[in-house]
């Protein structure tokens, strides 16, 4: 880290725009992180379990591995996407329900808190019985996404300021009309905050679900690679899962910024 310090300091002194400087710092930081990981691997500081990153990327680039990795990746991404969409729909739906029928709200709030506290592992026997081993990952994703989206959407639905509600009341709006014209648009920034949080949770949920006896997916690959001493495969799968999470997270953050500009 000392090696890069003089360079960045002179850049700071040259009076760069703060945004640019932040990006540069971040890039340098990530580069240093990757370099350290590479060096640990090159010199075998942590033994054979920590390969050089270059060899992991070489493994990823090798067409011979593409079928195995591609199958696992598409399985996990599909589970995350399907479960995520179900979770988003359910979370938004329950939040709207709680808003339209306030009597139901305390029960739904409490239930969401319980769902959050229940460890996904503990739900395994329950979920396997409902959907089988192949369907469990989707259900794990859907459950954790539902929780995050329900909480963020219902806190978003409560953000519209009181003058708006007064206005709509005087104009003679019914509850549903107010929800559609004011509360839902006002909730969009918080909903997208929730999506950014849910994005990595979707990949995590899918891989957790795969641990309970699924036949394919990145989560299965993690375990089988570990048990068979396939260190390169283990790392390649891990890198893919991180890249997936980052892409989903990045997309959610970009959407969230655009929404926040327009609706907040």
């Amino acid at each position: 880290m000392t090696a890069v310090r003089p360079g960045t300091q002179s850049a700071a002194r040259a009076g760069m725009r703060p945004g640019l400087r932040t990006a540069l710092y971040g890039l340098v930081g990530v580069a240093v992180l990757l370099l350290i990981a590479e060096l640990i691997g090159q010199f075998g500081l942590l033994g054979t379990t920590w390969p050089p990153l270059t060899s992991v990327f070489a493994f990823l680039a090798d067409p011979a591995n593409h079928t195995l990795l591609g199958n696992a990746l598409s399985t996990t991404v599909t589970e995350a996407a399907v479960g995520g969409l179900i979770g988003i729909a359910a979370g938004v739906g329950f939040a709207l329900l709680a808003s339209l029928v306030p009597v139901l709200a305390p029960g739904l709030d409490r239930f969401a808190a319980v769902i959050d506290a229940v460890p996904a592992v503990a739900l395994a026997p329950f979920l396997i019985l409902i959907l089988g081993r192949e369907g469990t990952p989707v259900l794990v994703v859907a459950l954790s996404t539902t929780f995050i989206i329900y909480i963020s959407m219902s806190s978003g639905l409560a953000t519209a300021a009181r003058p708006y509600h007064d206005l709509l009341a005087v104009l003679g709006a019914r509850r549903g009309t107010r929800l559609r014209l004011v509360d839902v648009p006002a909730a969009l920034p918080k909903l997208f905050d929730g999506l950014a949080l849910a994005a990595p949770a979707m990949i995590l949920g899918a891989t957790i679900g795969e641990w309970f006896g699924a036949r394919r997916g990145l989560g299965v690959l993690f375990i089988s690679a570990m048990q068979n001493y396939r260190i390169d495969l283990l790392w390649a799968a891990a890198v893919l899962s991180v890249l997936c999470s980052l892409v989903l997270y990045g997309a959610a953050v970009v959407a969230q910024r655009a929404i926040a500009r327009r609706f907040a």
Binding site: P163, D166, L171, P185
Partner: peptide, 17 residues
């Protein structure tokens, strides 16, 4: 107000942003 025959303007303009 149910008949939508009431007009109102508050101190806070309450225009939807």
């Amino acid at each position: 107000s149910r008949a939508h025959r009431l007009g109102v303007a508050f101190q806070e303009h309450s225009l939807l942003p």
